[in-house]
Design a protein around this nucleic acid. Structure first.
Length: 211
DNA sequence: AGCAAGATTAGCT
DNA sequence: GCTAATCTTGCTA
């Protein structure tokens, strides 16, 4: 079983208390880690999308819709919101704070640790295709509905500091054609030119970050 | 109890 | 590009 370097530790809960659009950008470059009996698998987050509470028609929590599925979105920031989409599990980070149902969808990773177990789980041998989509990365890391509501500040599922990206591209969210005006909100973020993003798309604008 | 829809993916044309 | 896969959730009755 592969072990992580000892300096890789979960980010504190305060990290998740920034505004959702900021968090969606701050998560880029961070390391998403899942530990299971099969071993550790982890990758750098390279693509995210923000879903912002009652006013966002594309969000599951639109109009404060509170059901068994969306319940965790109303809880504190830094919990895992997992849900099923067709045959796949998708992974989100809850944000916004108590009673503010917001979340960041993690859409793609750059594989870093446990690549062999990822290949086994995915039945795929090409590194680039292992985690370049929201349903693919959960399968590669072994994230499933048992992770619903889990805190991301401790094992077996957590996020650690990684590398700060030099440049972030911003565009429209993917797969929400039927959501009226919300489909055009520029709330998708990815590391510019990264080869592990789920889809190549024209950016609305690019943010250059100071080192 | 029945049913339509879905923040996707893989495989084929 | 297009479609099937496949199943849970949430809404309506």
């Amino acid at each position: 079983m592969e072990n992580l370097p000892k300096e890789i530790v979960p980010l504190p809960k305060e990290f998740y208390e920034q505004p959702t659009l900021e968090l969606a950008k701050a998560l880029l470059g961070c390391l998403l880690v899942k530990e299971t009996s099969q071993g550790i698998a982890a990758g750098y987050i390279v693509e995210t999308e923000a879903y912002i509470g009652p006013g966002d028609r594309a969000a599951h929590s639109y109009n404060n819709k509170r059901t068994a599925r969306t319940e965790v979105m109303f809880h504190r920031s830094g919990l895992a919101y997992t849900y099923l989409m067709h045959t796949h599990c998708l992974f989100n980070v809850v944000s916004g704070g108590e009673e503010k149902p917001e979340a960041v969808l993690v859409r793609a990773l750059e594989p870093q640790y446990g690549i062999d177990v990822m290949k086994t789980r995915r039945g795929v041998d090409v590194l680039k295709n292992l985690t370049n989509g929201p349903g693919k990365l959960t399968k590669a890391l072994g994230i499933n509905m048992e992770d619903y509501g889990r805190s991301l500040t401790l094992p077996p599922l957590f996020i650690a500091k990684g590398n700060n990206p030099e440049s972030i591209s911003v565009g429209k969210r993917i797969g929400i054609e039927n959501t009226g005006e919300a489909k055009d909100y520029p709330w998708r973020f990815w590391i510019t030119d990264n080869q592990f993003v789920s889809r190549h798309q024209k950016s609305e604008y690019v943010i250059q970050l100071n080192p």
